Amino acid sequence: MQFLRLDQFAAHLNETFMVDIENVRTPFVLVEARPIQHQPIPGLVREPFSLLFRHEAAVVFPQRIYTMSIDGMGEFGIFLVPIARDRDGFIYQAVFN
């Protein structure tokens, strides 16, 4: 299992990640990567963070773990939750805590 960190994603802000949806690779653009405020916890392995991705489709995909990839990070599973819709498509969030 790959241990993902905020800095890995921040390096790919506004870039396209490919997400496997029913064996079809679909583009999701990383539009935000930010830390989450939290109380200090002794032994915390990584700082919590949130990611927002935009997908330009008229259909919303359900929340679940999707296989995602981008050059430089390889392939990994990520739990995406649809949280908003705007004129350009849907926004999905992934939270790491």
Rank of each mutant, 00 (worst) to 15 (best):
residue 95 V to G: 09
residue 9 F to S: 10
residue 68 M to W: 08
residue 47 E to L: 14
residue 44 L to N: 09
residue 34 R to K: 10
residue 79 F to N: 15
residue 86 D to C: 06
residue 47 E to M: 11
residue 72 G to P: 09
residue 60 V to G: 11
residue 76 F to I: 01
residue 36 I to A: 06
residue 58 A to M: 07
residue 10 A to C: 03
residue 26 T to K: 12
residue 94 A to M: 04
residue 20 D to L: 01
residue 29 V to I: 08
residue 61 F to V: 12
residue 75 E to F: 11
residue 3 F to P: 12
residue 35 P to L: 01
residue 65 I to D: 14
residue 62 P to E: 03
residue 61 F to M: 13
residue 34 R to V: 15
residue 96 F to Q: 09
residue 84 A to G: 02
residue 82 P to C: 00
residue 96 F to C: 12
residue 47 E to V: 08
residue 16 T to N: 07
residue 65 I to A: 14
residue 95 V to D: 15
residue 59 V to W: 08
residue 8 Q to P: 02
residue 61 F to I: 10
residue 95 V to S: 14
residue 1 M to Y: 14
residue 82 P to W: 03
residue 3 F to Q: 14
residue 36 I to T: 08
residue 78 I to M: 11
residue 83 I to Q: 06
residue 85 R to V: 08
residue 38 H to G: 13
residue 6 L to R: 08
residue 78 I to E: 00
residue 38 H to I: 06
residue 5 R to T: 14
residue 83 I to G: 02
residue 82 P to H: 01
residue 25 R to E: 14
residue 25 R to K: 15
residue 84 A to N: 01
residue 80 L to K: 01
residue 41 I to V: 15
residue 5 R to G: 06
residue 42 P to G: 15
residue 50 S to Q: 15
residue 46 R to N: 10
residue 57 A to V: 06
residue 64 R to G: 02
residue 57 A to M: 05
